[in-house]
Design a protein around this nucleic acid. Structure first.
Length: 316
DNA sequence: AATCTGCTCAACCGCACATAC
DNA sequence: GGTATGTGCGGTTGAGCAGAT
């Protein structure tokens, strides 16, 4: 089916916004306590623009919480790290940088960071090293790191969604206390079980990071959280019951040892509820901590390949 | 001074998804 | 279940500017 244009294009203005138009839009949104329907906004506000244009102008420029000025080194670092995990999912990346818009980040990437990575001999899409024969050096894919990336991706999506819904933009400050959480898990018995399990039978859910972007695939928030959370929660929730029902729909159940300490008493309800899975995700104590991406990998006994293969090392 | 080139970034376009009917 | 509509997202474009020639 053909998609109808967002509005009647006849007589509508295009191109740069004038200060007068900006003022009209801002006044209207302030006066009405919100934008309401973008489609009807231009008519109601008396603007000769389409709703889409108004929305873009507001979200990318007029919104009061927009941060102006050049990106800091920290912000650039974070963009590179998140891009390594999420790819070109600018909106999700933007949700982690307060006051920055997806458009801004996209522009930053295309004009600066991409070139910087290329200058360092890294493929800007995969963040992998480009060899002389213009192929990328691909480390053997590790299921746990892919899952870590998937989990992180899902977590960021969840946060983005929540921040959109609440219209708040107050990210939880980055902390250090759990910075090595994944690595501790990886090096623990749980990690060992997980590795063992993945070697055996998890191919159905071993989608690459890029696939995690699709909510219809195995890497959806629901699938990821039900898949990953037993491992993570298994370490964070003490004294809970066991239940082998919690599993990825398209995968086999988890090995029993992985489920130790995991409270699945309500997993039947959780299983099919992405909201519940989302909650489980957000309850995980690693709140917004991206610092593990920056940690010196030498501090851990983890094989360096595990980190480099997913571009967890910031090339700055 | 005129022209060219490269860069930046605001804005547009088309598609996908979610939701309502 | 099918269709219409609203919204969000990512890719792309092009005007404006600065520096080089």
């Amino acid at each position: 089916m053909g998609r109808a244009p967002c509005c009647d294009k006849k007589g509508l203005k295009k191109g740069p916004w004038t200060p007068e138009e900006d003022q009209i839009l801002v006044d209207f949104i302030k006066k009405n306590g919100g934008h309401g329907s973008w489609r009807s906004l231009p008519k109601l506000a008396g603007l000769l623009r389409c709703g889409k244009s108004c929305r873009l102008r507001w979200t990318n420029y007029l919104r009061p919480d927009i941060k102006r000025g050049p990106f800091t080194q920290e912000e650039e670092k974070l963009v590179i790290q998140l891009h390594g995990i999420l790819g070109n999912r600018w909106a999700t990346i933007a949700s982690q940088l307060p006051g920055r818009t997806d458009n801004e980040i996209k522009n930053l990437w295309n004009t600066h960071l991409k070139k910087r990575l290329m200058g360092m001999g890294l493929d800007p899409q995969t963040h992998e090293l480009i060899t002389s024969c213009s192929t990328t050096v691909k480390a053997p894919a590790s299921p746990i790191t892919r899952h870590m990336a998937q989990w992180e991706s899902a977590r960021l999506e969840a946060e983005a969604r929540l921040s959109r819904e609440s219209s708040l933009f107050n990210p939880i400050p980055l902390g250090k206390s759990d910075s090595d959480y994944f690595l501790r898990i990886w090096n623990s018995e749980i990690g060992e079980s997980f590795r063992k399990f993945n070697r055996e039978d998890k191919t159905a859910c071993q989608s690459p990071v890029s696939q995690a972007s699709s909510s219809t695939k195995c890497g959806s928030i629901s699938a990821i959280t039900t898949e990953i959370s037993p491992i993570l929660l298994g370490s964070s929730i003490a004294g809970s019951n066991q239940n082998e029902d919690n599993e990825c729909k398209s995968c086999k159940s988890y090995p029993e040892e992985m489920m130790v300490g995991y409270d699945t008493s309500s997993s039947d309800e959780l299983e099919d509820s992405s909201d519940s899975a989302l909650q489980m995700l957000l309850d995980f104590p690693i709140n917004n901590d991206m610092s593990f991406l920056e940690e010196d990998i030498d501090k851990y006994s983890t094989p360096p390949a595990m980190l480099t293969e997913n571009s967890f090392i910031c090339p700055l």
